[in-house]
């Protein structure tokens, strides 16, 4: 009951942020301002929902509360794919691909690669948290060094393109692209929501899940599939978001300390949306800063990650 009320409260807060973001300090042509900001707002909300959902799902199947797909090497994978695309196609070709084409290419490549990465991570070492973190870090290192190698072979002029896409940016995104991203995000979140009771059981661990009639391998595969769709879409849309998921899900767990996915999924999505929209509102309209929001989020998120790792007593 209390949790439901908190969620309603968060929803209100989100509405305030949204209204503030759309209206604050806007002068001149309303139609233009609203469509410009509305477009960015939709992107922020899509990213919020997919990042938080992917993180919750990932934490459920890995049975811990400090890992996220990004930390486990996914961001490095994104940069690798980006560099390889630019290297193979050349920056000219790469930039001239339609935005939608580039998005679809990125998403498809990343989904395939993500499935392989997460499948490997969870295949053997799952019972051992530290072995899993280590594997993730080693993968990330491997991806980074290959990326570095490729970047040395890229024409310096082309390299600018890679560098530009290496940070998450919530700039204006064209409409067809936004529509595709929205459809994929919606499909992923719908699948996660349909699974919510099964996720509760999967979170108990594979023996307990089997005992309760839930096939853990099947469940894990479905979850990882949804996770790779969601992270690929959000990363292809705006770029890598290293610690965002971890930060918002940790905060959501503090606010609604529950293991029930029916509550945790919406509460994490709300926290994430408030963080992104509210953060962008403050940075862009109140402080008039041009710093990408993600830089601030990453700094706080990184500290939270360290804190969790050091404080980790249970499990």
């Amino acid at each position: 009951m209390l949790h439901k009320r908190l969620c309603v409260l968060a929803l209100l807060l989100l509405c305030v942020c949204v209204a503030g973001y759309l209206l604050l300090g806007s002068r001149g042509n309303w139609g233009f301002v609203l469509s410009f900001r509305g477009n960015k707002l939709v992107a922020l909300l899509l990213v919020a929902v997919s990042v938080s959902t992917a993180t919750v799902l990932f934490q459920t199947v890995t049975q811990n509360h400090i890992l996220t797909p990004a930390i486990m090497g996914f961001d490095a994978l994104y940069l690798l794919i980006l560099s390889v695309s630019v290297f193979v196609l050349g920056a000219q070709q790469f930039v001239h691909l339609s935005e939608t084409g580039r998005f679809l290419l990125n998403t498809t490549l990343m989904m395939g690669a993500a499935l392989m990465l997460f499948g490997t991570l969870l295949g053997r070492a799952r019972s051992d948290l530290f072995r899993m973190i280590l594997t993730g870090i080693i993968f990330a290192g491997l991806f980074r060094s290959i990326t570095g190698f490729i970047q040395r072979m890229i024409d310096p002029n082309d390299y600018v393109v890679v560098q530009f896409s290496s940070f998450a940016r919530f700039s204006r995104i064209n409409l067809p692209l936004l529509a595709i991203a929205a459809a994929l995000t919606f499909a992923g979140c719908f699948a996660a929501w349909r699974m919510r009771h099964r996720l509760d059981v999967l979170a108990l661990g594979s023996d307990a899940a089997t005992n309760l009639g839930v096939n853990p391998r099947e469940g894990m595969f479905q979850v990882l599939f949804v996770v790779s769709v969601l992270v690929s879409v959000s990363t292809a849309l705006v770029g890598p978001l290293a610690f965002l998921g971890l930060l918002v899900v940790s905060v959501a767990r503090q606010i609604t300390p529950t293991e029930t996915h029916g509550l945790l999924l919406p509460s994490a999505a709300l926290v994430c949306a408030i963080t992104l929209v509210g953060g962008q509102l403050v940075l862009e309209h109140l402080l008039n800063l041009n710093t990408p929001l993600i830089v601030v989020v990453d700094m706080i998120g990184g500290l939270v990650f360290l804190g969790l790792l050091l404080r980790r007593k249970r499990r």
């Binding site: 108990l204 005992n211 309760l212 839930v214 293991e259």
Partner: peptide
Amino acid sequence: PNDVLARKLAILPQSNDTAPLL
């Protein structure tokens, strides 16, 4: 099927450190 068996037979494994926050 897994869920049919789950209504027929239950197991409590030797070591179980399930969800400490429940």
